[in-house]
Design a protein around this nucleic acid. Structure first.
Length: 427
DNA sequence: TCTGGGGTCCTAGGACCC
DNA sequence: TCTGGGGTCCTAGGACCC
């Protein structure tokens, strides 16, 4: 019988797998990849998991023990991962009529045919991605996205399946048993808070949630969780969205390697961050009508923790880093409290409008003091000579500032920079 | 000494209007 | 002395995901 199947295709331990493609000596060894600033563990190889190295644990807390156990740590190399991700998504797109790129290492796709057909296609896709990009993938298939996510867990936990699991290949009784073995907090869309809220209702597993009164779930939680109930029953509530449009919101935020304490340092930070955000807005053809900025102290440090958040509305949508920077400094600068040690700041652009359809309307002539071509010129130079080659004001940082990110164990950007290509030695 | 970053969606509550 | 109710819009914050 021909039907439509939803599949989730994702890479196993994606960041670690990317590192291994260009450094095969890492294969078979325990490897972790760290977040920005080498802060915490964000990806682990199977061998690292077996050593009970937890996800999201601060690296400084376990570094000594991990090194003793032979664990290799890498700083995150997002340029490499982003490029590998784009290659994998492109290859996958040739294999399906509809694809939703869901995250850096996952796509939902639609498959047609019988259950056996779908499994065969998934296996072909897996083999192709392995061969052409070098990444190990897993595929979960079912009638809805939420069930496909559960199948994907199965494909990883049961090696006998060869990386592909179709829930529809099992009898109803077997499916019930599978759902009964899964914690409700492990269901896609049910987080820790919601799981705690569902417990008093006697809902502890995926099977419990599927059998629950959907209206009650909505009352106690929200419409999001009610949809999960229907999705678990095979009722499709979350259709594939293949349109690849720009983001609704663009954010650039970073933790600092060392805290900042002065308004002058904050102005430097905001100069860099607004330019990064503006460049990304221009790259997707957007201009912003609103911006939010924040600066925060460490929630882990002794004493009180503060986070200053400010919102700015622009009378005219803009993508000009100078306008953004001035507004950010004017709004956030006065909020700084003397003596505080700020460890993180960020800029986000909201209410994005399409630049092409946005005709500048400057009735009062207030925009006259900005040079319209500046941003385009900066983009152009950055494109041709690299991001470090140019920046407005303080973003053209010649001397590396103390607060910039720490990345002590970063691998080469082997797919995007000629001078960092992998070198192959013949024997 | 050292605890990530970038998103989405939903809800509650306030402001405002008639 | 008595002081409604329904609707919309906006924003901040919560929850979740990877």
């Amino acid at each position: 019988m021909s039907e439509r199947h939803v599949a989730i295709v994702d890479a196993n331990d994606f960041y670690v797998s990317c590192e291994r493609v260009f450094d095969p000596s890492l294969v078979g060894r325990p490897v972790v990849v760290l977040s920005n600033n080498d802060g915490c563990v964000v990806a682990r190889s199977a061998e690292a998991k077996a050593l009970e190295i937890d996800m999201a644990v601060p690296w400084h807390r376990i570094a000594d023990r991990a090194r003793m156990l032979g664990v290799v740590a890498r700083s995150s190399n997002y340029e490499l991962y982003g490029d590998m991700s784009a290659r994998a998504a492109e290859i996958l797109s040739r294999r399906t009529a509809s694809q939703e790129v869901y995250s850096i290492d996952e796509s939902f796709i639609a498959l047609e045919g019988t259950v056996d057909d779908a499994i065969a296609q998934a296996q072909a896709i897996r083999a192709e991605l392995r061969r052409l990009v070098g990444l190990p993938m897993s595929v979960g298939i079912a009638s809805t996205k939420t069930l496909a996510k559960l199948a994907n867990r199965g494909s990883k936990s049961n090696p006998a399946l060869g990386g592909v699991c179709h829930l529809g290949a099992y009898s109803a009784a077997r499916q019930e048993a599978i759902l009964a073995s899964i914690d409700v907090g492990d269901v896609w869309g049910i987080g820790r808070r919601t799981a705690r809220r569902l417990a008093p209702l006697g809902i502890g597993t995926a099977a419990d949630l599927r059998a629950a009164d959907a209206t009650l779930v909505r009352r106690r939680c929200s419409v999001v969780q009610e949809r999960v109930v229907h999705e678990l029953r095979g009722i499709d509530c979350l259709p594939l969205e293949d349109v690849q449009e720009g983001r609704d919101q663009i954010q650039h935020s970073r933790s600092f390697a060392v805290p900042i304490t002065t308004a002058a340092e904050l102005a430097e930070v905001l100069s860099v961050y607004t330019q990064r955000a503006a460049a990304r807005a221009r790259a997707q053809g957007s201009m912003a009508r609103a911006m939010r900025c924040f600066a925060a102290t460490s929630p882990f440090a002794a004493g009180s923790h503060v986070s200053h958040v400010v919102s700015v509305a622009f009378p005219e949508a803009t993508d000009d880093p100078l306008v953004l920077h001035r507004a950010a400094v004017a709004a956030l600068g006065p909020q700084l409290e003397p003596g505080r040690r700020y460890v993180r700041a960020g800029v986000s652009l909201h209410e994005l409008v399409d630049r092409a359809s946005h005709a500048t309307l400057d009735v009062f002539g207030t925009a006259g003091d900005e040079r319209p071509g500046t941003s385009a010129v900066v983009d152009d130079i950055a494109e041709r000579f690299g991001e470090q080659s140019v920046g407005l004001g303080l973003a053209g940082l010649r001397a590396r500032r103390a607060w910039t990110m720490r990345r002590d164990m970063v691998s080469p950007r082997a797919t995007t920079h000629w001078d960092e290509l992998a070198v192959v030695h013949a024997r």
